[in-house]
Protein backbone atom coordinates (compact mmCIF):
# COMPACT_ATOMS: atom_id res chain seq x y z
CA UNK A 1 0.00 0.00 0.00
CA UNK A 2 1.58 3.26 -1.02
CA UNK A 3 -0.71 5.94 0.33
CA UNK A 4 -0.55 6.46 4.06
CA UNK A 5 -3.40 8.25 5.75
CA UNK A 6 -2.69 10.14 8.96
CA UNK A 7 -4.53 7.47 10.92
CA UNK A 8 -4.02 8.97 14.41
CA UNK A 9 -5.58 12.24 13.24
CA UNK A 10 -8.61 10.54 11.72
CA UNK A 11 -8.94 8.26 14.74
CA UNK A 12 -8.94 11.26 17.02
CA UNK A 13 -11.84 12.54 14.98
CA UNK A 14 -13.49 9.16 15.22
CA UNK A 15 -13.18 9.12 18.99
CA UNK A 16 -13.94 12.69 19.90
CA UNK A 17 -16.15 14.03 17.14
CA UNK A 18 -18.38 11.06 16.55
CA UNK A 19 -19.03 9.28 19.86
CA UNK A 20 -22.47 8.20 18.62
CA UNK A 21 -20.66 5.82 16.29
CA UNK A 22 -19.76 3.49 19.12
CA UNK A 23 -21.95 0.78 20.57
CA UNK A 24 -22.90 0.37 24.21
CA UNK A 25 -20.43 -1.52 26.40
CA UNK A 26 -20.90 -5.01 27.79
CA UNK A 27 -20.88 -5.43 31.55
CA UNK A 28 -18.72 -7.89 33.45
CA UNK A 29 -21.21 -9.90 35.48
CA UNK A 30 -19.00 -12.74 36.72
CA UNK A 31 -15.29 -13.41 37.17
CA UNK A 32 -13.16 -16.25 38.46
CA UNK A 33 -9.45 -15.78 39.06
CA UNK A 34 -7.80 -12.69 37.65
CA UNK A 35 -8.90 -12.00 34.09
CA UNK A 36 -7.41 -8.89 32.54
CA UNK A 37 -8.73 -6.13 30.31
CA UNK A 38 -6.55 -4.64 27.60
CA UNK A 39 -7.88 -1.16 26.89
CA UNK A 40 -8.00 0.39 23.44
CA UNK A 41 -5.10 2.54 24.64
CA UNK A 42 -3.10 -0.64 25.17
CA UNK A 43 -2.90 -0.73 28.98
CA UNK A 44 -3.60 -3.90 31.00
CA UNK A 45 -5.74 -3.89 34.14
CA UNK A 46 -7.58 -6.46 36.22
CA UNK A 47 -11.18 -7.06 35.21
CA UNK A 48 -13.69 -6.91 38.07
CA UNK A 49 -17.41 -7.43 38.55
CA UNK A 50 -19.31 -4.53 37.06
CA UNK A 51 -16.51 -3.30 34.82
CA UNK A 52 -17.63 -2.23 31.35
CA UNK A 53 -15.98 -3.83 28.33
CA UNK A 54 -16.12 -1.52 25.36
CA UNK A 55 -15.55 -1.83 21.67
CA UNK A 56 -11.83 -2.00 20.96
CA UNK A 57 -11.09 -3.70 24.28
CA UNK A 58 -9.80 -7.21 24.82
CA UNK A 59 -10.39 -9.66 27.67
CA UNK A 60 -7.37 -11.88 28.37
CA UNK A 61 -7.74 -14.86 30.70
CA UNK A 62 -4.99 -17.01 32.17
CA UNK A 63 -5.06 -20.42 33.77
CA UNK A 64 -8.14 -20.82 35.93
CA UNK A 65 -9.63 -17.47 34.91
CA UNK A 66 -13.18 -17.05 33.64
CA UNK A 67 -15.06 -13.88 32.72
CA UNK A 68 -18.73 -13.56 31.84
CA UNK A 69 -19.98 -10.49 30.02
CA UNK A 70 -23.55 -9.37 29.53
CA UNK A 71 -24.50 -7.35 26.50
CA UNK A 72 -27.06 -4.52 26.72
CA UNK A 73 -29.70 -6.83 25.15
CA UNK A 74 -29.18 -9.47 27.87
CA UNK A 75 -27.16 -11.92 25.77
CA UNK A 76 -24.09 -13.29 27.52
CA UNK A 77 -20.57 -14.24 26.53
CA UNK A 78 -18.37 -16.50 28.66
CA UNK A 79 -14.62 -16.26 28.17
CA UNK A 80 -12.94 -19.45 29.43
CA UNK A 81 -9.38 -19.80 30.71
CA UNK A 82 -6.36 -19.12 28.48
CA UNK A 83 -8.41 -17.14 25.99
CA UNK A 84 -8.21 -13.84 24.17
CA UNK A 85 -11.59 -12.24 23.40
CA UNK A 86 -12.12 -8.96 21.60
CA UNK A 87 -15.03 -6.65 20.80
CA UNK A 88 -14.74 -4.36 17.81
CA UNK A 89 -17.32 -2.09 16.18
CA UNK A 90 -17.96 -2.00 12.45
CA UNK A 91 -20.39 -0.24 10.15
CA UNK A 92 -23.19 -2.28 8.63
CA UNK A 93 -25.00 -0.15 6.07
CA UNK A 94 -25.13 2.90 8.28
CA UNK A 95 -25.62 1.10 11.59
CA UNK A 96 -22.87 0.50 14.12
CA UNK A 97 -22.58 -3.15 15.12
CA UNK A 98 -20.22 -4.92 17.41
CA UNK A 99 -18.18 -7.86 16.20
CA UNK A 100 -16.90 -10.49 18.62
CA UNK A 101 -13.83 -12.59 18.14
CA UNK A 102 -11.60 -14.99 19.99
CA UNK A 103 -8.27 -15.61 18.40
CA UNK A 104 -7.28 -17.95 21.23
CA UNK A 105 -8.99 -20.24 23.70
CA UNK A 106 -12.71 -20.93 24.19
CA UNK A 107 -15.64 -18.50 24.24
CA UNK A 108 -19.29 -19.45 24.68
CA UNK A 109 -22.01 -17.24 23.23
CA UNK A 110 -25.55 -17.39 24.64
CA UNK A 111 -27.45 -15.37 22.09
CA UNK A 112 -31.06 -15.95 22.96
CA UNK A 113 -32.15 -12.45 22.00
CA UNK A 114 -31.45 -11.39 18.45
CA UNK A 115 -32.84 -8.22 16.97
CA UNK A 116 -31.99 -6.83 13.55
CA UNK A 117 -29.09 -8.33 11.67
CA UNK A 118 -26.82 -11.07 12.93
CA UNK A 119 -23.74 -10.05 14.88
CA UNK A 120 -20.41 -10.92 13.28
CA UNK A 121 -18.56 -13.56 15.29
CA UNK A 122 -15.06 -14.58 14.30
CA UNK A 123 -12.38 -16.99 15.31
CA UNK A 124 -8.89 -16.56 13.91
CA UNK A 125 -9.88 -18.30 10.68
CA UNK A 126 -13.68 -18.43 10.30
CA UNK A 127 -16.86 -16.40 10.72
CA UNK A 128 -20.12 -17.56 12.29
CA UNK A 129 -23.58 -16.27 11.51
CA UNK A 130 -25.90 -16.70 14.46
CA UNK A 131 -29.61 -17.46 14.67
CA UNK A 132 -30.69 -17.41 18.33
CA UNK A 133 -28.33 -19.95 19.74
CA UNK A 134 -25.85 -21.12 22.35
CA UNK A 135 -22.50 -22.15 20.99
CA UNK A 136 -18.82 -22.24 21.83
CA UNK A 137 -15.90 -21.24 19.66
CA UNK A 138 -12.54 -22.94 20.31
CA UNK A 139 -9.53 -21.21 18.77
CA UNK A 140 -6.46 -23.42 18.68
CA UNK A 141 -2.74 -22.79 18.79
CA UNK A 142 -2.32 -23.52 15.08
CA UNK A 143 -5.07 -21.05 14.08
CA UNK A 144 -7.73 -23.75 13.62
CA UNK A 145 -11.21 -23.40 15.13
CA UNK A 146 -13.96 -25.62 16.36
CA UNK A 147 -17.58 -24.44 16.58
CA UNK A 148 -19.78 -26.44 18.97
CA UNK A 149 -23.53 -25.77 18.94
CA UNK A 150 -25.62 -26.48 22.05
CA UNK A 151 -28.88 -25.05 20.75
CA UNK A 152 -30.13 -23.30 17.63
CA UNK A 153 -28.10 -23.15 14.44
CA UNK A 154 -25.08 -21.29 13.18
CA UNK A 155 -23.60 -20.82 9.73
CA UNK A 156 -19.82 -21.10 9.67
CA UNK A 157 -17.89 -19.70 6.73
CA UNK A 158 -14.23 -19.69 5.76
CA UNK A 159 -12.34 -19.42 2.50
CA UNK A 160 -15.58 -18.59 0.67
CA UNK A 161 -17.50 -21.70 1.76
CA UNK A 162 -20.28 -21.97 4.34
CA UNK A 163 -21.74 -24.85 6.32
CA UNK A 164 -24.78 -24.92 8.63
CA UNK A 165 -24.27 -26.46 12.03
CA UNK A 166 -27.26 -27.51 14.13
CA UNK A 167 -27.84 -28.49 17.74
CA UNK A 168 -25.34 -30.98 19.23
CA UNK A 169 -23.18 -30.76 16.14
CA UNK A 170 -19.74 -29.27 15.66
CA UNK A 171 -17.56 -28.26 12.77
CA UNK A 172 -13.81 -27.90 12.65
CA UNK A 173 -12.13 -25.32 10.43
CA UNK A 174 -8.46 -26.01 9.83
CA UNK A 175 -6.51 -22.85 9.35
CA UNK A 176 -6.52 -21.62 5.78
CA UNK A 177 -9.13 -24.21 4.73
CA UNK A 178 -12.89 -24.28 4.19
CA UNK A 179 -15.07 -25.64 7.03
CA UNK A 180 -15.07 -29.44 7.32
CA UNK A 181 -18.12 -31.68 7.55
CA UNK A 182 -20.28 -31.09 10.64
CA UNK A 183 -20.19 -34.02 13.06
CA UNK A 184 -22.37 -35.00 15.99
CA UNK A 185 -20.99 -34.47 19.49
CA UNK A 186 -22.11 -35.55 22.91
CA UNK A 187 -22.40 -32.58 25.25
CA UNK A 188 -19.28 -32.23 27.35
CA UNK A 189 -17.44 -34.83 25.28
CA UNK A 190 -15.04 -32.27 23.81
CA UNK A 191 -12.99 -30.02 26.04
CA UNK A 192 -10.78 -27.24 24.85
CA UNK A 193 -7.49 -28.46 26.27
CA UNK A 194 -7.92 -31.92 24.75
CA UNK A 195 -8.82 -30.51 21.34
CA UNK A 196 -6.10 -27.87 21.48
CA UNK A 197 -3.52 -30.50 22.49
CA UNK A 198 -4.25 -32.20 19.17
CA UNK A 199 -3.86 -28.92 17.31
CA UNK A 200 -0.52 -28.29 19.07
CA UNK A 201 0.67 -31.75 18.03
CA UNK A 202 -0.40 -31.01 14.46
CA UNK A 203 1.51 -27.72 14.55
CA UNK A 204 4.68 -29.38 15.78
CA UNK A 205 4.30 -32.25 13.30
CA UNK A 206 3.92 -29.94 10.32
CA UNK A 207 4.62 -26.32 11.23
CA UNK A 208 4.85 -25.19 7.62
CA UNK A 209 1.33 -26.42 6.82
CA UNK A 210 -0.03 -24.57 9.85
CA UNK A 211 1.87 -21.41 8.96
CA UNK A 212 0.77 -21.53 5.33
CA UNK A 213 -2.85 -21.96 6.44
CA UNK A 214 -2.60 -18.94 8.74
CA UNK A 215 -0.91 -17.01 5.93
CA UNK A 216 -3.84 -17.78 3.60
CA UNK A 217 -6.19 -16.49 6.30
CA UNK A 218 -4.10 -13.33 6.60
CA UNK A 219 -4.34 -12.82 2.85
CA UNK A 220 -8.12 -13.23 3.10
CA UNK A 221 -8.31 -10.61 5.87
CA UNK A 222 -6.08 -8.25 3.91
CA UNK A 223 -8.43 -8.57 0.92
CA UNK A 224 -11.32 -7.49 3.17
CA UNK A 225 -9.18 -4.65 4.50
CA UNK A 226 -8.34 -3.48 1.01
CA UNK A 227 -12.03 -3.49 0.05
CA UNK A 228 -12.80 -1.36 3.11
CA UNK A 229 -9.93 0.99 2.22
CA UNK A 230 -11.23 1.28 -1.35
CA UNK A 231 -14.56 2.49 0.07
CA UNK A 232 -12.98 4.82 2.61
CA UNK A 233 -10.27 6.59 0.60
CA UNK A 234 -12.53 8.23 -2.04
CA UNK A 235 -14.86 9.50 0.68
CA UNK A 236 -11.94 10.95 2.62
CA UNK A 237 -10.71 12.70 -0.54
CA UNK A 238 -14.22 14.01 -1.25
CA UNK A 239 -14.50 15.32 2.31
CA UNK A 240 -11.18 17.12 2.06
CA UNK A 241 -12.23 18.65 -1.25
CA UNK A 242 -15.68 19.62 0.08
CA UNK A 243 -14.15 21.40 3.07
CA UNK A 244 -11.80 23.32 0.79
CA UNK A 245 -14.74 24.21 -1.45
CA UNK A 246 -16.68 25.43 1.60
CA UNK A 247 -13.90 27.90 2.32
CA UNK A 248 -14.09 29.17 -1.25
CA UNK A 249 -17.90 29.45 -1.04
CA UNK A 250 -17.62 31.46 2.19
CA UNK A 251 -15.10 33.88 0.66
CA UNK A 252 -17.13 34.35 -2.51
CA UNK A 253 -20.74 34.20 -1.31
CA UNK A 254 -20.78 34.69 2.48
CA UNK A 255 -22.08 32.89 5.57
CA UNK A 256 -25.56 31.89 4.39
CA UNK A 257 -24.18 30.29 1.25
CA UNK A 258 -21.52 28.35 3.12
CA UNK A 259 -24.05 27.14 5.70
CA UNK A 260 -26.24 25.78 2.91
CA UNK A 261 -23.22 24.23 1.19
CA UNK A 262 -22.05 22.55 4.40
CA UNK A 263 -25.49 21.16 5.09
CA UNK A 264 -25.85 19.73 1.60
CA UNK A 265 -22.35 18.51 0.82
CA UNK A 266 -19.99 18.53 3.81
CA UNK A 267 -22.17 17.12 6.58
CA UNK A 268 -23.20 13.92 4.75
CA UNK A 269 -19.55 13.24 4.01
CA UNK A 270 -18.61 13.96 7.64
CA UNK A 271 -21.10 11.33 8.72
CA UNK A 272 -20.19 8.70 6.14
CA UNK A 273 -16.40 8.94 6.26
CA UNK A 274 -15.83 7.86 9.91
CA UNK A 275 -18.20 4.93 9.35
CA UNK A 276 -16.05 3.70 6.48
CA UNK A 277 -12.95 4.12 8.63
CA UNK A 278 -14.63 2.00 11.30
CA UNK A 279 -14.62 -0.90 8.84
CA UNK A 280 -11.02 -0.29 7.83
CA UNK A 281 -10.06 -0.45 11.49
CA UNK A 282 -12.19 -3.55 12.06
CA UNK A 283 -10.30 -5.54 9.41
CA UNK A 284 -6.93 -4.08 10.35
CA UNK A 285 -7.45 -5.09 14.00
CA UNK A 286 -8.75 -8.52 13.00
CA UNK A 287 -5.53 -9.05 11.09
CA UNK A 288 -3.49 -7.77 14.03
CA UNK A 289 -5.24 -10.31 16.22
CA UNK A 290 -4.26 -13.12 13.83
CA UNK A 291 -0.72 -11.81 13.66
CA UNK A 292 -0.35 -11.48 17.43
CA UNK A 293 -2.25 -14.49 18.75
CA UNK A 294 -1.82 -17.07 16.00
CA UNK A 295 1.49 -16.24 14.36
CA UNK A 296 2.92 -15.01 17.68
CA UNK A 297 1.81 -18.17 19.45
CA UNK A 298 3.14 -20.44 16.71
CA UNK A 299 6.46 -18.59 16.73
CA UNK A 300 6.87 -18.83 20.50
CA UNK A 301 5.90 -22.52 20.56
CA UNK A 302 8.32 -23.47 17.79
CA UNK A 303 11.13 -21.16 18.84
CA UNK A 304 11.04 -22.44 22.41
CA UNK A 305 10.86 -26.04 21.18
CA UNK A 306 13.86 -25.64 18.85
CA UNK A 307 15.76 -23.06 20.91
CA UNK A 308 18.80 -25.35 21.11
CA UNK A 309 18.52 -26.35 17.45
CA UNK A 310 18.33 -23.05 15.55
CA UNK A 311 19.03 -24.78 12.24
CA UNK A 312 16.36 -27.45 12.62
CA UNK A 313 14.68 -27.73 9.17
CA UNK A 314 11.13 -27.42 10.58
CA UNK A 315 12.04 -24.23 12.40
CA UNK A 316 13.86 -22.76 9.41
CA UNK A 317 10.97 -23.63 7.07
CA UNK A 318 8.42 -22.17 9.49
CA UNK A 319 10.40 -18.94 9.77
CA UNK A 320 10.33 -18.46 6.00
CA UNK A 321 6.52 -18.46 5.94
CA UNK A 322 6.41 -16.34 9.09
CA UNK A 323 8.65 -13.74 7.44
CA UNK A 324 6.39 -13.60 4.36
CA UNK A 325 3.33 -13.11 6.57
CA UNK A 326 5.03 -10.33 8.50
CA UNK A 327 6.00 -8.56 5.29
CA UNK A 328 2.36 -8.61 4.14
CA UNK A 329 1.22 -7.39 7.55
CA UNK A 330 3.76 -4.58 7.58
CA UNK A 331 2.86 -3.44 4.09
CA UNK A 332 -0.94 -3.71 4.14
CA UNK A 333 -2.05 -3.51 7.76
CA UNK A 334 0.41 -1.42 9.78
CA UNK A 335 -0.50 1.83 7.95
CA UNK A 336 -3.96 1.47 9.53
CA UNK A 337 -2.74 0.84 13.08
CA UNK A 338 -1.71 3.24 15.81
CA UNK A 339 0.86 2.63 18.58
CA UNK A 340 -1.90 1.99 21.14
CA UNK A 341 -2.99 -1.07 19.14
CA UNK A 342 0.37 -2.74 19.65
Amino acid sequence: MNTRTPVPVVLAFLVFAAPALFSQPAETVYVEGFPELRSSAGSLSDLFFGDPVRSGETVITGRGDVAELQLPNGNTITVSSNSVFNMQDYDDEGETRTGFSNSRGAVTYRFNVLTGRQPRIQSANAVAGVRGTVFTVFAGDDGSSLFLVESGRIAVSAQGEEVEVGEDFAVEVRTGEAPGEPFEVLRGAIDFSGWNGGRQDALLANPVAAAEGAYRRMQELVRELNLAVAEYEPLRAQLTEARAEATRVFEAEGQDAVDAFREEFVRPLEQATPRRLLNVRYWALSTLSLRRHVFGRMYSLLKSTYVMEPNHPDWVAYRNVHTQALALFEDAVVPWLVPADI
Partner: peptide, 23 residues
Protein backbone atom coordinates in the same frame (compact mmCIF):
# COMPACT_ATOMS: atom_id res chain seq x y z
CA UNK B 1 10.79 -13.22 22.15
CA UNK B 2 13.20 -12.11 19.41
CA UNK B 3 10.81 -9.59 17.79
CA UNK B 4 7.55 -11.35 18.68
CA UNK B 5 5.32 -9.76 21.30
CA UNK B 6 3.77 -12.36 23.60
CA UNK B 7 0.95 -11.13 25.80
CA UNK B 8 -1.03 -13.97 27.46
CA UNK B 9 0.70 -15.15 30.61
CA UNK B 10 0.08 -18.78 29.72
CA UNK B 11 2.02 -18.34 26.49
CA UNK B 12 4.97 -16.99 28.45
CA UNK B 13 4.71 -19.92 30.85
CA UNK B 14 4.68 -22.43 27.96
CA UNK B 15 7.68 -20.68 26.43
CA UNK B 16 9.69 -21.06 29.65
CA UNK B 17 8.53 -24.63 30.08
CA UNK B 18 9.69 -25.48 26.55
CA UNK B 19 12.99 -23.63 27.05
CA UNK B 20 13.71 -25.72 30.14
CA UNK B 21 12.63 -28.95 28.42
CA UNK B 22 14.96 -28.13 25.52
CA UNK B 23 17.87 -27.67 27.93
Amino acid sequence: LDSEIIEPSNDIYVMWRNFIAAG
